[in-house]
Protein backbone atom coordinates (compact mmCIF):
# COMPACT_ATOMS: atom_id res chain seq x y z
CA UNK A 1 0.00 0.00 0.00
CA UNK A 2 1.02 3.60 -0.48
CA UNK A 3 0.13 6.44 1.82
CA UNK A 4 -0.54 9.57 -0.19
CA UNK A 5 -2.08 12.98 0.25
CA UNK A 6 -4.94 13.60 -2.15
CA UNK A 7 -6.47 17.08 -2.16
CA UNK A 8 -5.12 17.65 1.33
CA UNK A 9 -6.48 14.38 2.74
CA UNK A 10 -4.29 11.45 3.75
CA UNK A 11 -5.45 8.26 2.05
CA UNK A 12 -4.19 4.73 1.38
CA UNK A 13 -4.03 3.40 -2.15
CA UNK A 14 -2.62 0.30 -3.81
CA UNK A 15 1.08 0.45 -4.63
CA UNK A 16 2.19 1.14 -8.18
CA UNK A 17 -0.98 2.88 -9.27
CA UNK A 18 -0.80 5.27 -12.20
CA UNK A 19 -2.48 8.66 -12.18
CA UNK A 20 -4.99 7.27 -14.67
CA UNK A 21 -5.86 4.37 -12.37
CA UNK A 22 -6.33 6.76 -9.48
CA UNK A 23 -8.67 8.91 -11.57
CA UNK A 24 -10.62 5.84 -12.62
CA UNK A 25 -11.01 4.83 -8.96
CA UNK A 26 -12.73 8.15 -8.31
CA UNK A 27 -14.57 8.13 -11.66
CA UNK A 28 -12.82 11.32 -12.69
CA UNK A 29 -11.05 10.06 -15.82
CA UNK A 30 -13.66 11.60 -18.12
CA UNK A 31 -14.06 14.87 -16.27
CA UNK A 32 -12.57 18.26 -17.03
CA UNK A 33 -9.84 18.31 -14.44
CA UNK A 34 -6.18 19.13 -14.01
CA UNK A 35 -3.63 17.36 -11.85
CA UNK A 36 -0.62 18.37 -9.86
CA UNK A 37 1.76 15.62 -8.78
CA UNK A 38 4.19 16.76 -6.08
CA UNK A 39 3.80 20.34 -7.22
CA UNK A 40 4.20 19.77 -10.96
CA UNK A 41 1.36 19.71 -13.46
CA UNK A 42 0.86 16.34 -15.16
CA UNK A 43 -0.23 16.62 -18.78
CA UNK A 44 -3.07 14.39 -19.94
CA UNK A 45 -0.76 12.37 -22.17
CA UNK A 46 1.23 11.29 -19.11
CA UNK A 47 -1.66 10.06 -16.94
CA UNK A 48 -0.94 6.44 -17.83
CA UNK A 49 2.82 6.81 -17.54
CA UNK A 50 3.05 8.51 -14.17
CA UNK A 51 3.19 6.18 -11.16
CA UNK A 52 2.23 7.23 -7.65
CA UNK A 53 4.75 6.57 -4.89
CA UNK A 54 4.44 6.46 -1.12
CA UNK A 55 4.10 9.97 0.45
CA UNK A 56 3.27 11.63 -2.87
CA UNK A 57 1.05 14.68 -2.89
CA UNK A 58 -1.67 14.91 -5.50
CA UNK A 59 -4.06 17.72 -6.22
CA UNK A 60 -7.05 17.32 -8.53
CA UNK A 61 -8.80 20.54 -9.46
CA UNK A 62 -11.78 21.51 -11.58
CA UNK A 63 -13.85 24.56 -12.45
CA UNK A 64 -16.38 25.85 -9.97
CA UNK A 65 -18.60 28.91 -9.94
CA UNK A 66 -16.66 32.10 -9.35
CA UNK A 67 -16.69 35.81 -10.07
Amino acid sequence: MAKIQLNGKKILIKSNLTIFQLLKKYKLHNKKIAIEHNGSIVSKTNYKKKYIKNLDKIEIVHFIGGG
Binding site: L6, Y26, K31, I33, F63
Partner: peptide
Protein backbone atom coordinates in the same frame (compact mmCIF):
# COMPACT_ATOMS: atom_id res chain seq x y z
CA UNK B 1 -18.49 33.54 -17.90
CA UNK B 2 -15.82 33.65 -15.24
CA UNK B 3 -15.06 30.47 -13.32
CA UNK B 4 -12.79 29.62 -10.41
CA UNK B 5 -10.43 26.67 -9.97
CA UNK B 6 -10.66 24.61 -6.82
CA UNK B 7 -10.04 21.11 -5.49
CA UNK B 8 -12.60 18.59 -6.72
CA UNK B 9 -14.75 16.80 -4.15
CA UNK B 10 -13.36 13.28 -4.21
CA UNK B 11 -15.65 11.79 -1.57
CA UNK B 12 -18.99 12.67 -3.18
CA UNK B 13 -18.84 11.34 -6.73
CA UNK B 14 -22.45 12.19 -7.52
CA UNK B 15 -22.24 15.85 -6.56
CA UNK B 16 -23.18 17.99 -9.58
CA UNK B 17 -20.45 20.06 -11.16
CA UNK B 18 -20.53 23.36 -13.05
CA UNK B 19 -19.68 21.88 -16.44
CA UNK B 20 -22.87 19.74 -16.25
CA UNK B 21 -24.89 22.97 -16.32
CA UNK B 22 -22.78 25.36 -18.38
CA UNK B 23 -21.26 23.69 -21.39
CA UNK B 24 -17.74 25.06 -21.98
Amino acid sequence: VTVAIRRINITDKKKPILTDYLNP
